[in-house]
Nucleic acid binder design. Structure first.
Lengths: 223, 223
DNA sequence: TGACTATGAATGAACG
DNA sequence: CGTTCATTCATAGTCA
């Protein structure tokens, strides 16, 4: 979208100044944009809710792998950026080397080592220090886990939650995703009765509990 | 329906009038309200996406292996996953707040501050002071390591675009705004930066991979 | 094609 | 504080 210069830069400037102080004045365009933005969000929420409700067999189209490259499907549709995560995959050779190093002992990679290893492996393919670091981390962690599983720990079925290795781990146990089961319209947080309003830090939920309505009513959006 | 007296009728009226005319002037409260709205929608969208994903995903949540820690009472409604977490996971909102503090703050956790922050975040979900403390510790440590890792290193490979992004983390930014471009276009106050991030008081998105992007990518919303 | 499995990566928590 | 551990998430590859 182009800048709406024609509507006067005065307002822009005005906003900038105000912004530094208390940011109160917005140009029509700005307000307009804001509206759109919010509407977009509400639209997304709705669609998601809808999607969720119908809950049909929608498969995530994460993209098409082209070897090591990644081609985002959206970009084709929207002509938009690619943000999907592409993860490193060690070549057999790299893996071999890593294994060797791992075996040699020194369960401690050491940052300096990492660098060396990384640059060495780089000759056999793309790799970064982080990759190496992660690899060792995972390697050790998993071999350890496997070990402990294969040994006598195969018991502990009585949910040894606290007894195991918890020194002072926080109990936590939130996961309010569960509260979304109904979709947006019943967005209750932690069983609280205030729902979305609380989430949004609203004290007075007078104008309705639904953010969408709230929004429309308060700011006359969509109007 | 009650009026928001606590916010000052002056400003409210002012807005109404303005709204009728050209809707330009907004009070701090109103702006604040907008921020919250957007944040709320962000959160909702993300959570819905999450929910949807977890339900449509092939994961088969083989029962509850964590036993007593978490027992969801409402899951009966939908029979979706029950994911007990042993460790704290910040909600989008909490994360948002934390990020803000991290950015603008002196970067100094400070015992007293921690307490305050914790109690504030507690309003958005389960959290403890330790969580906050740890978060800051990790945040700093990792952002630091990010530098030291991404420097030097003979990782001179041509690195096929995507993988180069950042060596390790944070692709984000206000990227997700772009995803709404279809109907919204960029939300710019000044034509340059300070998009929605500013509105939301968010200088830098921090999560390793942002849910909003993911959201749009996965569901092709607003298409 | 949908589910499973192996594993790279992210991150809260703990340690020295 | 910097480093390491432990747990969990996401994805690539594969099998039925």
């Amino acid at each position: 979208m182009e800048r709406e210069n024609q509507h006067g830069e005065e307002e822009y400037l005005q906003y900038q100044i105000q912004n530094g102080v208390c940011g109160k004045v917005m140009s029509d365009e700005q307000v307009e944009e804001l509206k759109k933005q919010i509407v977009a969000y509400s639209a997304i929420s709705e669609q998601l809710a809808e999607l969720h409700k119908s809950m049909s067999a929608h498969h995530d189209f994460t993209g098409i792998r082209l070897g090591n490259l990644y081609c985002d499907p959206i970009s084709a549709t929207f002509g938009h950026k690619i943000t999907a995560r592409q993860r490193w995959t060690p070549t057999p050779l790299q893996l071999q080397i890593l294994e060797n190093i791992y075996e040699k002992g020194t369960g401690t990679p050491s940052k300096q080592k990492i660098k060396e290893i990384a640059s060495e492996l780089a000759q056999h393919g793309q790799i970064s220090e982080t990759n190496v670091y992660n690899w060792f981390q995972n390697r050790r962690a998993r071999s350890k886990r496997k070990f402990q599983v294969s040994t006598g720990s195969a018991n502990a079925e009585s949910e040894p939650d606290v007894s195991t290795k918890e020194k002072k781990t926080k109990p936590v146990g939130l996961d309010f995703i569960d509260n979304f089961s109904q979709g947006v319209e019943s967005f209750y947080f932690q069983g609280s009765e205030s729902g979305i309003d609380q989430l949004m830090g609203k004290e007075e939920s007078s104008r309705g509990y639904d953010p969408y309505n709230n929004l429309v009513e308060q700011f006359g959006l969509l109007g």
